[in-house]
Design a protein around this nucleic acid. Structure first.
Lengths: 257, 257
DNA sequence: CGCCGCCTTGACCACCATCAAGTGGAGTGG
DNA sequence: CCACTCCACTTGATGGTGGTCAAGGCGGCG
């Protein structure tokens, strides 16, 4: 793991002083003011980590839990032939492996894609949150279950959807997730991924990603340039890939927000 | 959901009187004798369900938790074009959606593939087990995390492995899982799946499954006939697909068993 | 006996991987 | 300021894995 401990300026300002983890959890539970204060505290000592650094590698035993405060990271595995599959994208507010202590060694790696702000939360802190703050516990559990549902939805994509729908579906999901933590700007958001990395997410070669992206552009659905994605027509994009957000399990409370 | 309430003979005898859920949990935790007695109790009223019946459908709100006591079931989703992806195979001893109460509506369906023995566990029972039996809780949590890791491994298969390795990998996994609950007979086990259903698991067409299966047979790796799979050379099969069982998270204690 | 579902086989071809070469922008050093 | 490098993106050519369509065989069951 390579990190950069120097206190240089944050790569992304935290939007409106909002804490992405809190914002996210509020969609799965209702926190008390005390809960919020506590959660704010745990990111106090976030540190900056460069792009393409591993936070933890397959086979290692994690001591702490990572919280992505800003930036883009991923879970991934590589095969012996060198090909890589990205198993999940970790956005602002995403936590890694809350219960990993139970499992022993990691069966996959976690690494940054862009520069990231990462907070490390000790096991003791997690335990304290879980035992004394039931609403936080509920929120974390909800978040884990949504992660699992998302993993299943990706399975559906890789198994059954053609390349253009896979890309469209991923973009619809990311818009939804980033909006939920306040990191989308209307229908645009930063997506600091190369086309090759996009291919590693979707099980497509970089060359084919390029062609499909051009096609989606020609259909006036998206623009993806310079690490930023703009969705020109959200409804049409959702229609094109049969997007159904139910797997993200937003409750009615959130739906009307 | 179609069920058959008549008390006709069980389709599969429970092997040596062993309870598959208990057998499984013992690989992730150490149960007390009291825990075991309690767990045995919850399957008392298992009922027989025919093949290809839904236990619960996408959109419904589950009241109870299902435990597959015997037989083969699956989680699945279908796309609007009619294609189906099987998201997980549920074997003897597998529990569905312990914490589903948190999420509201199901985002996928669960159905049987073969005839099954299914026990329905009330939410109240789950709550009681969780609060008063920490070792059971730990076992259930371990089991959930292993399910998640398995979901990720399938993602890797669908994204990066060619068809023959996908099939080989699935077979290696099933052998391991069935051995763990005492449902494998040496290197053979019942696998009541059509080739089309195998394709729905692996994101492959039925026709191609057929050809790859023949190829694996010609390579003297497996025989798959009449709903039964025999692995002729386990080591060679594992080698052929780069199988690494780490994602099933067997602890050292189990490894030497 | 006849139907039905599954397996099997062949023909055809599309989607997408691979290989290769060229473009262009950002960063670096002379 | 201009070479030079590096990396990502782009484009074309080629071919393979695997999908689709169609027809026939085979076994189970009413």
């Amino acid at each position: 793991m390579t990190s950069d401990p120097s206190p240089r300026p944050r790569p992304w300002p935290l939007r409106q002083g909002l804490h992405p983890l809190i914002t996210k959890l509020e969609h799965g539970t209702s926190l008390t003011e005390a809960d919020r204060v506590l959660l704010s505290g745990i990111t106090a000592q976030s540190r900056v980590i460069g792009p393409h650094c591993d936070l933890i590698r397959e086979g290692e035993r994690p001591e702490n839990v990572f919280l992505i405060t800003a930036g883009l990271a991923c879970r991934y595995k590589v095969l012996s032939n060198g090909s890589r599959q990205i198993l999940a994208l970790l956005l602002s507010g995403d936590l890694c492996d809350l219960n990993v202590a139970l499992l022993g060694a990691m069966d996959h790696s976690i690494g940054t894609l862009s520069p990231c702000l990462v907070a490390e939360v000790s096991r003791a802190t997690v335990a304290e949150l879980s035992t004394n703050h039931p609403r936080i516990l509920q929120g974390l559990l909800w978040s884990t279950l949504v992660d699992l549902a998302t993993c299943r939805e990706w399975l559906l994509s890789l198994g059954q959807r053609p390349a253009d729908q896979r890309i469209a579906h991923l973009f619809c999901e990311l818009l939804l997730r980033l909006q939920l933590v306040g990191c989308a700007d209307g229908n645009s958001f930063d997506l600091p991924l190369t086309q090759g990395e996009l291919g590693d997410v979707l099980g497509i070669s970089n060359v084919h990603v390029n062609r499909v992206l051009q096609d989606l552009r020609k259909r006036n659905l998206i623009v993806f340039r310079g690490g930023r994605l703009e969705i020109l027509d959200v409804e049409a994009l959702q229609l094109a890939c049969d997007f159904n957000p139910n797997y993200r399990h937003l409750t009615p409370r959130q739906a009307r927000e």
